Simulated scan of single mutants.
Amino acid sequence: MNSKPSGQVSLKERRRNDYRHFLSYRTRWSDNDQYSHINNSVYYHLFDSIVNAYLISHCEISPQTSSSIGLVVSSHCQFFSPLSFPEVLDLGLRVNHLGKSSVTYEVGIFREGSTEPAAVGGYTHVFVDAVSRKTSQIGEQTREGLQRLFVPSESGPGSKL
């Protein structure tokens, strides 16, 4: 039974063209677990890698010197097909929600050249002052970079700029 709201796409139905930014990742032998596929924890490493690479190169965030930082407050992942070493993966990134102080990222993990995801997940950052850890608004340059990744929700309300 399909319980998703009318018009909403399930994560398994995502395709490569649903993502706005890509990063390649060459799997390593150490990514595999005892079952010869990529360990679940590695997927979260991949999410963190594409998000932070994007923030550094497109949002002028410097982990060592920025006055605000993003803290992960929730995360998720759905797995659709196994991946293993040696494969090259394409990591796709989009923003599903952009608030005053928070952003929700979605990452699609694709075999190189595939249009269907092997996994889809992501997390929510809440931006805080780097010293006090009090919630802070997303800076103008960071917001501009994140807006380029924003994809309006298929289900209507809930996502905003």
Score class of each variant (00 low, 15 high):
Gly7Tyr: 05
Ser66Trp: 02
Leu149His: 05
Ser114Asp: 10
Asn2Val: 02
Ile56Tyr: 08
Thr142Tyr: 00
His21Leu: 10
Leu161Gly: 00
Met1Gly: 14
Tyr123Asn: 10
Ala119Met: 01
Ser49Phe: 00
Ser74His: 13
Gln147His: 05
Leu71Ala: 15
Gly113Ile: 01
Lys134His: 14
Ser102Val: 11
Gly156His: 03
Ser57Tyr: 13
Ala118Pro: 01
Cys77Arg: 08
Tyr19Gly: 00
Val42Leu: 13
His58Asp: 03
Arg111Asp: 00
Glu87Thr: 10
Ile50Thr: 02
Ser68Gln: 12
Glu154Thr: 11
Lys100Gly: 13
Ile38Asp: 00
Glu60Met: 08
Ser74Pro: 02
Ser24Asn: 09
Gln141Arg: 13
Ser102Phe: 09
Phe22Lys: 10
Gly158Phe: 03
Thr142Ala: 07
Leu89His: 07
Lys12Trp: 07
Asn2Pro: 00
Phe110Ala: 01
Lys160Pro: 01
Pro63Lys: 07
Leu98Phe: 09
Arg133Met: 14
Ser84Met: 09
Leu89Glu: 08
Tyr35Ser: 04
Phe47Ile: 06
Gln141Cys: 07
Lys12Cys: 02
Arg94Cys: 11
Ser153Asn: 11
Thr65Ala: 07
Thr65Gly: 02
Leu71Asn: 14
Asp90Glu: 15
Asp18His: 15
Ser3Lys: 10
Ser136Glu: 14
Gln147Glu: 13
Val151Ile: 13
His21Thr: 08
Ile38Tyr: 04
Met1Asn: 02
Ser153Tyr: 01
Phe80Tyr: 15
Gln147Asn: 05
Pro82Lys: 12
Ser36Trp: 14
Ile50Val: 12
Val126Met: 08
Ser101Asn: 14
Arg111Tyr: 00
Ile38Gln: 03
Leu71Val: 15
Leu46Arg: 06
His58Thr: 00
Glu13Tyr: 05
Gln8Asp: 04
Gly121His: 06
Pro152Ser: 12
Gly139Val: 02
Ser30Ala: 15
Asp129Gly: 09
Glu13Pro: 02
Phe150Asp: 00
Gly108His: 06
Val95Tyr: 02
Gly158Val: 05
Ser132Gln: 12
Arg20Thr: 11
Asn32Ala: 11
Tyr35Thr: 06
Val128Leu: 10
Arg16Leu: 12
Glu13Asp: 15
Tyr44Asp: 04
Tyr19Arg: 05
Gly121Lys: 08
Val88Thr: 15
Asp33Gln: 07
Ser84Gln: 14
Ile109Cys: 04
Glu60Pro: 03
Glu106Phe: 03
Leu55Ala: 05
Asp31Tyr: 14
Asn52Tyr: 00
Tyr44Trp: 12
Pro5Asp: 06
Gly121Glu: 06
Thr115Trp: 00
Arg111Ala: 04
Gln8Arg: 12
Phe85Gln: 05
Pro5Ser: 04
Val120Gln: 01
Ser36Leu: 14
Arg20Ile: 09
Phe22Gly: 04
Glu112Pro: 01
Val72Glu: 11
Ser75Arg: 15
Val128Ile: 14
Ser114Tyr: 03
Gly99Pro: 00
Ser75Thr: 15
Gly108Ile: 04
Glu106Ala: 13
Thr135Pro: 07
Leu23Pro: 01
Ile61Ala: 02
